[in-house]
Design a protein around this nucleic acid. Sequence first.
DNA 1: CTTGACCATGACGTAGCGTCAACGTTTCTA
DNA 2: TAGAAACGTTGACGCTACGTCATGGTCAAG
Lengths: 242, 242
Amino acid sequence: MVGVSTRTVRHYHHLGLLPEPERLANGYREYRLRDAVALARVRRLAELGLSLDEVRDVLADDQGRELREMLLELDADLAREQAAIADRRARLAALLAEADLHPDSTVSPDMAEVLRGLPTGSSAFAELDRELLTLAATLSDSEGGAEFADLLRPLTEPEAYARGHALIARLDELADADPGDPLVAAVARDLADHLPDEMVSVMLASLDDAANGQWLEELLRELPAAQAEVFRLLVTQLKERG
Amino acid sequence: MVGVSTRTVRHYHHLGLLPEPERLANGYREYRLRDAVALARVRRLAELGLSLDEVRDVLADDQGRELREMLLELDADLAREQAAIADRRARLAALLAEADLHPDSTVSPDMAEVLRGLPTGSSAFAELDRELLTLAATLSDSEGGAEFADLLRPLTEPEAYARGHALIARLDELADADPGDPLVAAVARDLADHLPDEMVSVMLASLDDAANGQWLEELLRELPAAQAEVFRLLVTQLKERG
DNA sequence: CTTGACCATGACGTAGCGTCAACGTTTCTA
DNA sequence: TAGAAACGTTGACGCTACGTCATGGTCAAG
């Protein structure tokens, strides 16, 4: 009659949502009309989206005004959920449109162009950069890592990035060098002098936060020793200049 | 960086969504930048609403067109969910509006009026009727029991019900009577002659279906023997008339 | 040496039932 | 009248995506 499984009914018995009916001599439960009525009430509330615990509370408080509160709160929940779904569908649509144009890419079209501009394979530094930029691009349209992505976003601007592009070759030359090599200091000075303003401000802002300072250290461990040393020197110089 | 708990990361390792990184000498996992990149991709897909199994499938099929299918299917799911939520909010709003007018009622306003018209307390038959009508009203704006509610809906029409109202007194007189009492046959004939057309058609339609026939027998068991006998006779007569 | 802050594995809890499993009862059928 | 099929009973595990202990090892600071 009510359209639920026997398992569901027993579950409600177990949770105390529904009183157990009389048993027959053989132990079978015998349901009467009022049980169906009670079950239908439970189902109506449950289908509105109340949890079974909430349903129990409402039924226990038999028609207090608590029902109103819960229903209002529930409506607010549903509204939030609706908004979240709309947001997901929007991002999904964007992702689909993008996939139509660049079926091989996992990031946004302009970002993909930047990545294609990087030297591939032979350059270890470019490899790190590629990963870093991919990470930033991936995080930037998710939810959790928004703050981190904000820090790196200026790096994903095509122009800003193109200006720093030529520096990669100089860094790659240091791949196998010794951290004490005089070239290290030279490249660091060059970087400090010619680095685009956006990148400098991003780095300084990043260093202000203790947690980001940690990340920087971790990132440098991915690089050959001499390259890492370049960045340590660079950081020192930039800090001195303010 | 990515904004998830370590527990989540380990969960992804366990599910095979994310490769386990190298271990340090002490057994600690050492994560590198590419792990963060991989994790970010998992999160992006998961936050779009894919299940973790689906995420694994997508990542395994590395950029096949299967991604498109899944995303389209997912979008359809989300659309359905959106519609479902909208529906629930609509019912919820109706319920809230109704509660404002009649804080003590659990059914729709017109139904509440019908119920108030029934004799209360002293009449066992009215009591059964009240439960039956409440059940129908409760089911009618839920989902599962729609078919059953459709059968009983004509009974909830105020006019139709009011016309049958006077018959209740006659039935109540039989509460303690013997099933063989001559009054039983008399009341049954009276009912057959004066029952509103809507109720007759509902009963006949209901009897056509085997499952509903079952329900009728169950319902009759709720009544005193003489009253139940009245309805059995009534059913026989109505069937003969077609 | 202690204290606290990490890391590791393993296991249980969550919501709302679906789905066996193992066994007794009733009803239909040969 | 016996056996099969179709019910009923209780009990327990499965599912999602992790949160939250429990228990124990590791490491840096006071």
